[in-house]
């Protein structure tokens, strides 16, 4: 199987994630879509690592995982606070700041 297909897959995942961010309303889901995008990047890293035959990309993907984990912590904290005060996790409800 052609290795470049992994790149295409990664791109497709990234686009799916981006679309998800734009169209979904639930903050958790939106955030999951972001995670999907990060993982798309990971896939790309790993694939490129394979192509170039060095380990840089793989190391990068490890770092990304850690960072993504941190991001989850912070993100969930924010979303939960948000949910507590508004009884809703819809990002569309958080639209007081405008104009």
């Amino acid at each position: 199987m052609d290795i470049s297909n992994y790149i295409y897959l990664s791109a497709i995942l990234f686009v799916i994630g981006a679309i998800g961010v734009v169209v979904r309303r639930n903050a958790i889901v939106v955030f999951m879509c972001v995670e999907l995008m990060l993982n798309a990047a990971n896939l790309a890293f790993v694939t490129f690592s394979r192509i170039h035959g060095n380990l840089g990309g793989q190391i990068a993907s490890f770092f990304t995982m850690v960072v993504a984990a941190c991001e989850v912590v912070v993100g969930l904290a924010i979303i939960v606070t948000m949910y507590r005060s508004r009884r809703s996790a819809s990002v569309d409800d958080a639209s007081l700041l405008k104009r």
Partner: peptide, 25 residues
Amino acid sequence: AALKYFLLGAYSSAFFLFGGAFLYG
């Protein structure tokens, strides 16, 4: 503000990372 900052920030980091991947590629 925190929510917006976070979601959009994470979204942009994904772009950043993806860009990094391609530069690496």
